[in-house]
C-alpha cells in the first residue's frame, strides 16, 4: 500500500467521521494514526481542525482561534460520557435512521458540555464578588467555593441541583434579612448560641413532622442530619 493511498483512505475516513458515518474500522484507523503522529500535531489533526472550522462556518457560527488547552479540557469532559454516542454509533451501522440520529446528537451534547463550562464560570464569578456584610452577629464570611460541575442524567422537567462531593457542613446557613440588591446571598458564621438554637428548632421541627407521619422516613432523615455526633 503506497503512502498516497493510505493518506487518501485516512482522509475519506475523516470525512466520514465528520458526517457521523464512519464505521468501527475507520474510527480505529483514525485513532491509530492520530496516536502515532501525536494528537494535534500531525497532518490528520490539522485536517480535522480545518474540517471542523469549515463546518462551523457553514453552520453560520462565529469562529475564533481555538485555545488548544481549553479544547483539550472540553474534549476530556466529552470523553467521560461516550456511552450515548457510541451506542448510537453502533446502531448507526445497523439502520439508516440511526445514522441520522447520531449526527444530531453529537453537536447537541458538545454544545451542552460547553454551555456547562461557561455556566460554571459565570457562577464562579458571581460568587466571588465581595458580599456586603451587615448585621451585628456577623463574625466572618465563609469564602464561597465554586460548585464543581457534574453531568448526571436528570429526570425531565425537574432541575436537580448539581451534586457536591466535598464534605458539607451540616450547620444551618444564615441569610440575614437585609440583603444588598441582587447581590449573591451571603453565608455568615454566627454565634454558637444562635447556631445551637437553629439546630435545635430544626431538629425539633423534624421530629414533630415525623409524628404527623405522611412523609415516612424523610423527616427522620432530616432530624438525624443535624444530630450532633457524640463529643
Amino acid at each position: 500500500m503506497s503512502h498516497g493511498s493510505h493518506q487518501q483512505r485516512l482522509n475519506e475516513s475523516l470525512s466520514a467521521l465528520m458526517d457521523g458515518e464512519a464505521n468501527e474500522l475507520e474510527i480505529q484507523r483514525l485513532l491509530k494514526e492520530s496516536d502515532a503522529n501525536g494528537a494535534s500535531d500531525g497532518e490528520l489533526g490539522h485536517r480535522w481542525s480545518r474540517y471542523q472550522l469549515a463546518a462551523s462556518v457553514m453552520r453560520g457560527e462565529k469562529v475564533a482561534p481555538v485555545d488548544m488547552g481549553l479544547a483539550a479540557s472540553i474534549s476530556a469532559a466529552i470523553a467521560d460520557e461516550p456511552s450515548l454516542e457510541s451506542a448510537q454509533q453502533a446502531s448507526a451501522n445497523d439502520a439508516g435512521n440511526g445514522v441520522a440520529s447520531s449526527r444530531w446528537w453529537r453537536p447537541l451534547s458538545r454544545g451542552a458540555v460547553a454551555a456547562t463550562v461557561a455556566f460554571a464560570a459565570i457562577l464562579g464569578v458571581q460568587q466571588m464578588q465581595a458580599p456586603q456584610v451587615q448585621g451585628d452577629l456577623v463574625a466572618e464570611v465563609e469564602a464561597p467555593q465554586p460548585q464543581p460541575v457534574t453531568t448526571s442524567p436528570q429526570p425531565s422537567r425537574f432541575l436537580t441541583p448539581t451534586l457536591n462531593t466535598r464534605a458539607v457542613s451540616t450547620a444551618p446557613q444564615l441569610v440575614p434579612e437585609q440583603r444588598v440588591g441582587p447581590a449573591p446571598q451571603v453565608q455568615v458564621v454566627p454565634t454558637p448560641e444562635l447556631m445551637r438554637h437553629l439546630n435545635r428548632v430544626m431538629v425539633e421541627h423534624s421530629e414533630q413532622a415525623a409524628r404527623i407521619g405522611s412523609q415516612g422516613m424523610v423527616p427522620h432523615a432530616r432530624a438525624t442530619y443535624g444530630e450532633r455526633p457524640s463529643e
Partner: peptide, 12 residues
C-alpha cells in the same frame, strides 16, 4: 438572641 432573618439547611 436578636437575630432577624432566615437560615437554611437542606430543604428546611
Amino acid at each position: 438572641m436578636n437575630y432577624k432573618g432566615r437560615a437554611v439547611r437542606g430543604a428546611t
